[in-house]
Design a protein around this nucleic acid. Structure first.
Length: 552
RNA sequence: GGGCGCGUGGCCUAGCCAGGACAUGGCGGCAGCCUCCUAAGCUGCAAGUCGCGGGUUCGAAUCCCGCCGCGCCCGCCA
């Protein structure tokens, strides 16, 4: 059981011992640690809540776990024993048990899966950042996570890309494929809209490709790999790593087999085939989900079903990270999978879009900020700030890189996933206040103290009496609860908020409690706390995908 | 038109699922703090009809109903 829950349980036990069976809540700042509002009891006992609180206070004694139990108006407040909490928390951190969770399930988490038709832009970047962080959270919580990227090399978009590369001049301004071929893709899709013949050519190309034309397959493979490596290069800069790429084209024959198995639910319209979800009892805003075009080529819905069935063969728990535009698709997918697979846990982490102040991001309209450019700008900005502080050249580069990468990740993680984000340069690259550099700076302060102190490892927790010490300890003790919450609710932002809060609390401690100049016993106790903070922070920064640096 | 989500000081944001004590923090603004462990930090001040209107409740930012605004979706695209 997590430390803080143990204290809660002890408080509830003390209440049960005097015949009160109630759930206590966490207090607001300044009212102890736990509280029992007595309004409900007042109704039952037909007495005023204030009187009840007072009576309960008189019956309860302070204990090993609670140093004070006090009635304030209609509330009964419990104050945790500071030395007990300090003792338990510090030892849990220092022996590592605070950070270790029991082994859990095998999970396949899919994120990004961006079409390999152009560079990742800021609008899309929320997906890999959320997805990668979610994977790190689940791992920290004890799950065995495999991260997937579903490569769309089978749809119309890709046929358009291939047509564009074959039939239009290839620019040479960039060295990365994604920045080069995106122009061909843009131009090709524009032409396809204007010219029926181009559209037809692209459809023919798609048909030939799907039927397995060897020369075309080879060409496509090569180009898509190059696009993908450009995308991955961008993602790796942000410490985002994919374990496994699954190519859609490899699933086409399997997808067709599956479609046959679903025969009884499939209907035909003008030569195209769809699955009728009403027939399987689903109640969505749409019943017809098409599996095949009338030319016999497969559609994304069918291929995605096939992909999920494949995944379910190696993991019983699947998580998809995707934009809110996929909600209907996902609901339908889930309905179909219920027919085919048993005991599959399939969950989605949806996020809202990132737009620009002037509106939606659109590659074609040119209203787009590429991730590569954001990373470059961040690096430049960080470097210019550091230059004024006089570091060695190689340290400066390392710090600038760490700061920019972490700041970009944090700015995408620090908002609830379902809230839309309007991208602003100054906010995405904010280095002050609620930001990654603030967190990193705080960590560096702790590192600096420990570097100078040379602690021998002994400490007596009872020396930690200051309110700022206590608040820091209490926050550290909640680490497992926070990981638990983020993992179960699939909410990376919970970790971002907690990490920020922890850093903030350390800064209070830093201001109020000098470490190096303290009396020996107190100094040792504080060094234990600083060490505990640093370890906790290290875990959190790793989960957030920051570059961890000791000095800045 | 229907479905899903969002609406909290000038701007951004937490709390909402599991209703309770003065609504969390940041940015920006104003006023301060480096003979003392890193000032990317810290302190103080100004600034809020928690979109609007009803309801439930001893008590509503939180739950319910209705409305308004914004986003996304309702493709033989992915």
């Amino acid at each position: 059981m997590f430390i803080i829950d143990m204290f809660r349980e002890k408080a509830e036990q003390q209440l049960r011992d005097i015949g009160v069976d109630a759930r206590i809540e966490e207090s607001k700042e300044g009212f102890g640690d736990f509280t029992l509002p007595c309004f409900q009891l007042a109704k039952l006992m037909k007495k005023s809540p204030t009187l009840i609180a007072k009576e309960l206070q008189d019956k309860l004694k302070s204990s090993e776990y609670f140093e004070k139990i006090e009635a304030v108006g209609p509330y009964l407040n419990f104050y945790i024993s500071q030395s007990k909490l300090a003792e338990m928390t510090l030892s849990a951190v220092l022996n590592g048990s605070l950070f270790s969770f029991e082994k859990k399930e095998k999970i396949i988490l899919e994120h990004t899966s961006a079409n390999p038709t152009g560079p990742i832009h800021v609008g899309r970047a929320r997906n890999p950042i959320i997805g990668d962080t979610m994977a790190r959270i689940l791992r920290a919580y004890g799950h065995d996570v495999e991260v997937h990227y579903f490569v769309n090399d089978a749809g119309k978009q890709v046929a358009t890309l291939l047509w564009g590369i074959r039939n239009l001049p290839v620019a040479q301004q960039y060295d990365k494929c994604d920045h080069v071929f995106v122009r061909n893709y843009q131009e090709a899709s524009k032409l396809a809209q204007e010219d029926k013949k181009v559209d037809n050519d692209i459809r023919e190309l798609m048909k030939a490709y799907e039927s397995g034309d060897p020369e075309l397959t080879e060409f496509a493979k090569e180009k898509i790999k190059c696009m993908l490596s450009g995308i991955m290069e961008s993602l790796e800069k942000l410490n985002i790593h994919i374990d496994s790429f699954v190519w859609e084209s490899s699933l086409i024959s399997f997808a067709k087999e599956l479609a046959n198995k679903l025969e009884e639910y499939v209907e035909e319209e003008d030569g195209a085939y769809y699955i009728n979800l009403r027939k399987i009892g689903a109640n969505l805003q749409k019943d017809k989900f098409f599996l095949y075009r009338k030319d016999g080529t497969t559609l994304y819905f069918l291929r995605d079903i096939a992909y999920h069935v494949k995944k379910s063969e190696s993991a019983r728990y699947l998580i998809d990270v995707m934009g809110e535009d996929h909600k209907l698709h996902f609901s339908a997918l889930k309905e179909v999978l219920n027919l085919i697979t048993e005991e599959l846990k399939l969950r989605a982490l949806f996020y809202s879009f990132v737009s620009l102040p002037e509106g939606k991001m659109s590659t074609r309209a040119g209203t787009v900020v590429y991730l590569d450019d954001l990373i470059d700008e961040g690096y430049k900005k960080a470097l210019s700030i550091i230059r004024e502080r006089g570091y060695e050249e190689q340290d400066m580069k390392k710090i600038a890189k760490a700061v920019s990468v972490s700041a970009i990740r944090f700015s995408m993680l620090n908002v609830q996933e379902e809230k839309p984000i309007i991208f602003r340069w100054d906010k995405a690259l904010s280095f002050e206040g609620e930001s990654a550099p603030f967190i990193m700076y705080t960590y560096a302060r702790a590192s600096s103290i420990l570097r100078k102190a040379g602690w021998n490892g002994s400490y007596k927790p009872s020396f930690l009496q200051h309110i700022s010490e206590y608040r820091l300890i209490k926050l550290i003790s909640k680490y497992p609860n926070i990981i638990n919450k983020a993992a179960d609710s699939l909410s990376p932002y919970v970790i971002a908020k907690y990490t920020y809060e922890l850093a903030m609390q350390f800064n209070q401690f830093y201001r109020d409690c000098p470490v190096l100049n303290a009396e020996p016993e107190l100094k040792n106790a504080r060094l234990a706390l600083v060490t505990a903070f640093k370890s906790t922070m290290q875990n959190l920064m790793h989960i957030l995908g920051f570059n961890i640096i000791e000095k800045m």
